[in-house]
Simulated assay, not measured.
Amino acid sequence: MKYRKKPIVVEAIRWTGDNGKEIEAFCGTDVMFGTIYEPDPVSAACIHTLNGKMYARPGDYIIKGVNGEFYPCKPDVFAKTYEAVEE
């Protein structure tokens, strides 16, 4: 069988590597910042997801899911999956 993703609206923010205050305001206590070293040192946002810790690198989006959970998403996947909504 084939399935189509239901049309839902999510909130998201892009991690630029220097907008930590904005990310903290969005995620609250579900985010921490640090450095990861694979393959090269880069600043990272550590997101506490329903599946454990996941890391957002600069350029990645952080999405707030339908149940209030947060998770990172690569920009190419984000562009294929989501479009801007006018409020």
Rank of each mutant, 00 (worst) to 15 (best):
M1R: 13
K2M: 13
K2E: 15
K2G: 11
K2D: 14
R4H: 09
K5I: 12
K6P: 08
P7F: 10
P7Y: 01
V10D: 03
E11C: 07
E11K: 14
A12W: 02
A12L: 12
A12I: 08
I13N: 02
I13V: 11
R14S: 07
R14K: 13
W15G: 07
G17V: 05
D18M: 08
D18T: 10
D18A: 08
G20T: 01
K21T: 09
E22D: 09
E24H: 00
A25S: 14
F26S: 09
F26K: 09
C27T: 06
C27H: 04
G28A: 06
T29L: 12
D30H: 10
D30Y: 14
V31M: 00
V31A: 00
V31R: 00
F33G: 08
F33P: 01
T35G: 01
Y37M: 12
E38L: 12
D40K: 10
S43P: 12
S43W: 00
S43Y: 02
A44H: 04
A44Q: 03
A45Y: 03
I47S: 08
H48K: 15
T49M: 15
T49H: 12
L50E: 15
N51K: 15
N51C: 12
G52Q: 09
G52A: 15
K53H: 10
K53F: 15
K53T: 10
K53E: 15
M54P: 00
M54Q: 13
M54R: 14
Y55W: 13
R57S: 07
R57H: 11
P58Y: 05
D60G: 03
D60C: 02
D60S: 04
D60H: 03
Y61D: 07
Y61A: 04
Y61F: 12
Y61E: 03
I62H: 01
I62T: 05
I63A: 08
K64P: 04
K64G: 09
K64Y: 04
G65P: 07
V66P: 09
V66H: 10
G68M: 11
F70Q: 11
F70D: 04
P72G: 01
C73V: 11
P75D: 13
D76H: 02
D76F: 02
D76G: 00
D76S: 09
F78R: 09
F78T: 06
F78C: 10
A79C: 07
K80G: 06
K80Y: 05
T81Y: 04
T81Q: 12
E83P: 02
V85S: 02
V85E: 15
V85I: 11
E86H: 14
E87R: 14
